[in-house]
Design a protein around this nucleic acid. Sequence first.
DNA 1: ATTATTGCAAAGACTTTGCAACTCC
DNA 2: GGAGTTGCAAAGTCTTTGCAATAAT
Lengths: 140, 140
Amino acid sequence: MKITEITQWLTDKKLKVTPQRVAILEAIICLNNHPTADAIVEYIRDKNPNIAVATVYKVLDVLVENGLIHKVKTEIGLMRYEAASENHHHIYCSDSDRIDDYFDEELNQLLDSYFRNKRIPGFDIENIKLQIIGKYNTNH
Amino acid sequence: MKITEITQWLTDKKLKVTPQRVAILEAIICLNNHPTADAIVEYIRDKNPNIAVATVYKVLDVLVENGLIHKVKTEIGLMRYEAASENHHHIYCSDSDRIDDYFDEELNQLLDSYFRNKRIPGFDIENIKLQIIGKYNTNH
DNA sequence: ATTATTGCAAAGACTTTGCAACTCC
DNA sequence: GGAGTTGCAAAGTCTTTGCAATAAT
């Protein structure tokens, strides 16, 4: 992942480009596994040992507000983060804390047309996310 | 909601019937709005002023483990709870903390048949939950 | 130069733990 | 009576706040 690209995302959103912001975005992209705030700090401390935990939280908030990243909900009340990307769903492993992305355009269209026909009275749908819960049956 | 029925649920799971457990189940059912642990304490304190917060958490854990209630994930990392019931989905209001249930058997069957055809390699699906995010457009 | 961001430490919110006292079966 | 549960207070974990120092445009 090129840093110039990350920089561009920030400037596109009229956000100041700081080393911390770049590092955090880079971490989320490289880790690519819906890291917690803590995992992000760990990752960044290699290059940037002085980054404050509070800074990470503040930056994450800004990035979420600006749509550059998303929060991912977990069963255990810990927040995890992912880079914004195409509308996708999540696969939750029921016996570990693994979360994977699930991209399926056919499914998205199916849901789309389903809810275009069957509306929910008094409610405007903005987004639909599936949580697919189950177990991996092969060595992963 | 009759207390005898709640008692039955507990005995069916071979759990000891204590006033606290009954009160907590009763609270979740009566509140019927995916209460937080705190909201449950609030509700119970009327009748049972001495209940300890820690007890509520411990009981909630036991109830979740035994499948009598479920945890509901929120954006903000707060756990909420609901009585176990038919497989259903959740409607999240994007500008409040309101969460509603969404029952739709047709949708369940659609998803079921979709994933029976299109399997996810190496993964056994146990459950699929939709998070339907949007806004209420009428006074609610 | 101006405005926003960072780092630090302290506080806050929510949840868990440990253990003696107590209850349910 | 014995195993399991409760209440309490203390500790733990994750996250936020306040503010002076610092850095970005």
